[in-house]
């Protein structure tokens, strides 16, 4: 309980630090958002009126205070380029990106764990060489390229899905998940090969330890030794790695959204960066930071549950 409390506190501090860093960096960079919004129509009167409207005439610390209390209430301010609040602009995109990331994580875990176990079982057969080679190659293919390959094979050649025909989740959730399968697979593929390789290595390492001999000496069958003793120990480093992988998967979804034209956080982040729509960028970064920190927290707690030796 104390451990959870400590972890949650660190998480909140990290998020606060991130929000301070993000807000001040975007406030201090040169350039006047009001001026760029008005463009050629700028006159001194209109400029100062707009600056007042956007709150730019107040000192930066005061603006941070207003922004931050707003964020706590779920209000990220107004977008510069879209005439609506950031929150309403991002709502749907958040859900879309979350569906994609969660699907990628599920695919990664569901495939890589059995695969890693299978590879460990076959580690002294000829198949091992094939597995290692294929794994090494898949690991090297960036998700946006595997996304294109998947589009070529399953979209254009086999016609299992129509590239670009994204279905929003609120109009048809099943169809949406169906469309998202290949993007999620593209994100998951390199992670699958990394996780399964790690699991294979740790299983082999754990299988050589002395407690395994003890387990055999009690009359356990090989399968029981594996599932009751080896697997739990072998999963501990895998869980740590999965924690880092979750963050990577969230970042990966930003790129892969682009490949499959999925209108999630990644797409709007890119348009906001080119359009210098700072409130939207700030909000997205903070949200992504929140997801990353949250997934780290979940992994920490899982880790704590799996490995009794950790007492922090």
């Amino acid at each position: 309980m104390k451990y959870i409390l400590k972890k949650v506190t660190t998480m909140l501090i990290t998020l606060f630090v991130v929000s301070v860093l993000v807000f001040f960096s975007f406030s201090l960079i040169p350039g006047n958002p009001a001026l760029s919004k008005l463009g050629t129509e700028a006159t001194p009167e209109r400029l100062s009126a707009l600056e007042h409207e956007m709150g730019l005439d107040k000192p930066v610390v005061e603006r941070f205070g207003e922004w931050f209390t707003g964020v706590l209430r779920g209000d990220f301010g107004r977008s510069y380029s879209y005439n609506q609040s950031v929150t309403s602009l991002l709502k749907e995109k958040i859900a879309t990106t979350l569906i994609l990331s969660v699907m990628a994580i599920v695919i990664c875990v569901v495939i890589s764990l059995p695969l890693g176990i299978f590879m460990a079982r076959k580690s002294d057969s000829k198949l091992d060489i094939v597995f290692s080679a294929v794994n090494q190659i898949i690991m090297s293919i960036p998700s946006f390229f595997s996304g294109i390959i998947l589009t070529l094979i399953f979209g254009i050649t086999l016609k299992l899905f129509t590239p670009g025909a994204y279905v929003p989740y609120h109009s048809d959730l099943i169809k949406c998940i169906g469309y998202m399968f290949f993007p999620a697979l593209a994100i998951a593929l390199p992670k699958i090969s990394m996780v399964s390789k790690l699991l294979k290595d740790t299983v082999i390492k754990e299988a050589g330890k002395e407690y395994v001999r003890t387990a055999y000496s009690r009359g356990n069958a090989t399968k029981a030794v594996f599932y009751r003793h080896v697997l739990g120990n072998a999963l501990i480093p895998v869980i740590t790695f999965l924690g880092m992988t979750f963050a990577d998967i969230i970042a990966g979804s930003i790129i892969v959204e682009q490949v499959f034209s999925v209108p999630g956080l990644g797409r709007i982040l890119l348009t906001s960066i080119s359009g210098r729509d700072y409130p939207v960028i700030e909000a997205i970064i903070l949200l992504l930071a929140f997801f990353v920190v949250l997934s780290n927290l979940i992994v920490d707690l899982l880790y704590h549950k799996f490995d009794p030796r950790i007492h922090v």
């Binding site: 960096s25 960028i281 780290n296």
Partner: peptide, 24 residues
């Protein structure tokens, strides 16, 4: 502390933040 917080974020994300600040 800062380092560990940054380390938790994938490099592409961090780079996007910096690009957001300075342009591409």
């Amino acid at each position: 502390r800062i380092n560990d917080a940054l380390l938790a974020f994938p490099s592409v994300l961090l780079a996007l933040v910096v690009i957001g600040l300075f342009g591409s």
